[in-house]
Amino acid sequence: MAIPLVSGRCALIIQDMQNDVVMDGGAFASSGAPAHCREQNAISNIAALAAHCRGCGIPVIHVWFVVEPGAPGLTLNAPLFLGIVEENAVVRGTWGAEPVVGLEPMSGDHIITKMRMSAWQGTPLQTILMAEGRDTVIVTGAWTNMSIEHTARTGADMGYRMIVPEDCCATMNADWHNASINYALQNVARVTKSADLIDCFE
């Protein structure tokens, strides 16, 4: 990445890294998501990036998809949302809705819950970023071609500089991941690797 990043302007999002989403035994395990998460080494890569960010004073924001039992209020207008109901996924208070081991919130982190793909929709994300004085957002987590892409697109439209370290993201398989990383995200975010990103902070 050619452009240095100013730590005081950055925030890190860890999105949807929950047991039902990316772990064996989770509601969506049959999708291939756990295997691709392992292939990407996403949990370890995100953990290392988050540790570095905390050390630099960069806010870490956990964004989780959480519904109440029966998913009241979840608009069932898309297959993804229907799947949440059909699989009884990410229900508050269950193992499936909890963050994966290794990416639990630390003291000082922010926690946001949502009921849409984008981290912006119906959440206080922008309020937190404004309060912290941040205009550069690093997006990590799952799934690359869904929540990550939605969040990056919306953030770009809202005037934020969006950064996506691709080895900190995962989805159902490499084809879907690569389609998003190599095409969809190229015009809305700076795509990079976590190690390269860490070297960019000033």
Rank of each mutant, 00 (worst) to 15 (best):
I3T: 14
I3G: 00
P4E: 10
R9E: 14
C10I: 07
L12C: 14
M17P: 01
D20R: 03
V21R: 01
V21L: 08
D24Q: 03
F28R: 05
S31P: 02
G32P: 10
Q40S: 09
A42R: 04
A42T: 11
A42G: 06
S44T: 11
S44V: 09
L49I: 04
A51V: 03
H52N: 05
C53Y: 07
G55W: 02
G55T: 06
C56I: 10
C56V: 11
V60Y: 01
H62Q: 14
W64Q: 13
W64F: 00
P69F: 06
A71L: 12
G73K: 08
G73M: 11
T75P: 00
L76R: 14
A78M: 05
L80H: 13
F81Q: 08
F81Y: 12
I84W: 10
E86K: 09
N88F: 10
N88D: 15
V90C: 11
V91H: 09
R92V: 00
R92T: 10
G93I: 02
T94H: 12
A97R: 05
E98S: 08
P99N: 06
P99I: 03
V100I: 09
L103I: 01
L103R: 02
M106W: 04
D109W: 06
H110I: 08
M117C: 14
M117T: 06
W120K: 12
W120M: 05
Q121T: 12
T123F: 08
Q126I: 11
Q126L: 06
Q126S: 06
Q126F: 01
L129A: 10
E132F: 10
E132Q: 15
G133Q: 07
V137S: 14
I138R: 12
T140K: 03
T140E: 05
G141C: 11
W143A: 14
T144D: 00
T144W: 03
N145P: 00
S147C: 15
S147G: 13
S147F: 04
I148A: 03
I148C: 08
T151Y: 10
T151A: 13
A152V: 14
T154Q: 15
T154I: 14
A156I: 00
M158S: 04
M158P: 01
G159E: 08
G159Q: 04
Y160I: 07
Y160S: 10
R161T: 07
R161D: 10
M162S: 03
I163W: 14
P165Q: 13
C168K: 02
C168W: 04
C169E: 02
C169K: 02
A170M: 12
M172A: 07
A174R: 07
D175V: 03
D175A: 05
H177K: 11
H177V: 08
A179N: 11
A179D: 05
N182F: 04
L185G: 02
L185D: 01
L185Q: 02
N187T: 13
A189G: 01
A189Y: 10
A189K: 12
T192W: 12
S194M: 09
S194Y: 01
D196Y: 00
L197R: 01
L197S: 02
C200Q: 07
E202H: 09
